[in-house]
Design a protein around this nucleic acid. Sequence first.
DNA 1: CTGATTGCAATACGAGTGCATTGCAAAAGT
DNA 2: ACTTTTGCAATGCACTCGTATTGCAATCAG
Lengths: 224, 224
Amino acid sequence: MPKKVDHTERRRLIADALMRVAAEQGLEAVSLRHVAAAADVSAGMVQHYFRTKDEMMTFALSVVKERSQLRAEAAIARLGDDPHPKDLLRTLLTALLPLDEASREDGRVALAFLAYTAVRPQATANLHTETQQMVGFIAGLLPAAPENAAAPQNAPPNAPETAPQNAPETAPQNAPGNAADAAALLALMEGLGLYVLGGQYTPEQATAALDAHLDRLFGAGEKR
Amino acid sequence: MPKKVDHTERRRLIADALMRVAAEQGLEAVSLRHVAAAADVSAGMVQHYFRTKDEMMTFALSVVKERSQLRAEAAIARLGDDPHPKDLLRTLLTALLPLDEASREDGRVALAFLAYTAVRPQATANLHTETQQMVGFIAGLLPAAPENAAAPQNAPPNAPETAPQNAPETAPQNAPGNAADAAALLALMEGLGLYVLGGQYTPEQATAALDAHLDRLFGAGEKR
DNA sequence: CTGATTGCAATACGAGTGCATTGCAAAAGT
DNA sequence: ACTTTTGCAATGCACTCGTATTGCAATCAG
């Protein structure tokens, strides 16, 4: 074996450069040569580590997802053991919001990828299950709804019953929290992130909106 | 004046073709020649009506916004006079959700443009004011909050005080409805739309989530 | 030392891009 | 009838793109 080089490290280096380019100039400015220039390496090297551009894009996409997951896990770990579900939810969702400059960059890249993969229906299959797991996890944290009028639309019948593997913590099993509420909460976070990225909402407005909703879900009183 | 041709009609024809291409293959597949082929006209004609590609993109973007606005206005007009605020809100937000195939197409294009303009900070200035007007309009429809614990974050100081011109109806002036709740509601709609577009939520799940939230805001009882 | 394997650079190629230029036919003004 | 203006098509140009190919230096196995 000649010349030991850490392959995945090089790939990460290149993917980082890709994300820098994508965050600043958009995904359509991502080309082999641009990325190579941003990474300060030769274009040939990029080709050496990614045989095709699509392979590079796919890898970068996985890095983006990995990063946001790490962010969420770190924030939750900082909470200590057995936190109040409301605090846990707030921490989780806040960690996924593009509030500081670093996560704003990642958010821009993620948004670009969202539009990018919107046309390529492949490789979005796992996205579905991830979202469903997330909804399930959130639903488990919501307070049990007082039995209500209309029959609450339950989880869709095609939802996989597998336990969440990537969910950031040990989730209380499928608690009776309303699935529609959980889906709404997740979508709310996504929409807030979108508006923060677009600059329409300030981070303060977004967190205020999130808190207002959480207060409504949990009852305004119990803070910690 | 030779050869009378309706300029804006031609531009709309071309913009329609652009949106077809963008919806099916993404914005990066939008080129002069592709659009020309989709519109079944010569490439020279596209250049005749749009001197630059950016001009074409900008026009298409305006068409997208115009379409969604028309959709919302039509849905609201269908409600008749003096509807219940909850029904009005539900109708407005549902109309903006990509529930049928036509609006799904538009949604895909809008998402592509969102990522496209995320890098070009120009021409997003009006987007800010539009969103603020929308938030104000929604806030006016929300039931007055019982005076609460924490001082509710009011509208940001830099929010323009101009009356909404594009708002789909005559809005009750800045009613005391919580601005954070209105912002959350708008963001919720946006996030739901995103997930519906991505296929993670079915239209039924999205409307259920929206309804659950509206019920919570208005109190589950008063339906109509 | 020899030979093989690996890391990387450089170049070439065909395709596609946005845009400028040119040409020309049809209609309207005079 | 003649000129002018407009609508549109065609072509060319300089460039960037992704990928394939080639070459070579460094490194290790034998």
